[in-house]
């Protein structure tokens, strides 16, 4: 299941959705809006996407993960628009027969999502300034330091 939405992510429902009698393990990852980044205070994040391509990339990531781990069910939901502190921006839920597979697949999905899916966040700093986050560019604060190269 893949979804790009402007609404609050119901991660409890998403977790229920991937649960299965075939799976002994369920891992849920949530990305949430953090207040402090390198000593600077954030008031909100604005997310935007290239929706058609983002959906295509989500599908590719799920196919890639299904080829590497025995995934029973997997779901990715990303939220767009204005998100306040603590809001959930992304949820990745995976179920597999055993826990190691679920942890690995979940981690792989969120790591690859941050590298290849065309979604961007803009910081709204407490001092009133705004700044697009574009890792690897001159003034694009690198949240994870990963350069995008596909």
């Amino acid at each position: 299941m893949i979804q790009i939405t402007n609404d609050t992510i119901d991660y409890a429902a998403l977790t229920e959705r991937v649960r299965s009698e075939q799976a002994g393990a369920v891992v849920l990852f949530l990305g949430t809006v953090r207040e402090m980044t390198d000593g600077r205070k954030t008031t909100a994040l604005d997310y935007e996407a290239f929706p058609q391509m983002a959906e295509a990339k989500f599908k590719e990531l799920l196919d890639e993960a299904r080829g590497r781990w025995p995934i029973v069910n997997a779901a990715i939901v990303h939220r767009l628009g204005r998100l306040e502190l603590g809001d959930v921006s992304v949820a990745v839920a995976v179920s597999t027969p055993h826990r190691q597979q679920a942890f690995e697949a979940g981690r792989h999905l969120i790591d690859r999502l941050k590298e290849v899916v065309p979604i961007w966040k803009k910081e709204n700093w407490a001092d009133g300034t705004t700044e697009w986050v574009h890792p690897g560019t001159a003034n694009g604060s690198a949240e994870c330091g990963i350069r995008n190269a596909e």
Partner: peptide, 24 residues
């Protein structure tokens, strides 16, 4: 799909340009 510098273009293709992504 991501293209590289050598990807051939034609007038009928949909092209998008953007800086490094930061979803999540």
């Amino acid at each position: 799909d991501y293209a590289n510098d050598q990807t051939q273009l034609s007038p009928d293709v949909a092209v998008a340009c953007f800086p490094p992504v930061s979803g999540g």
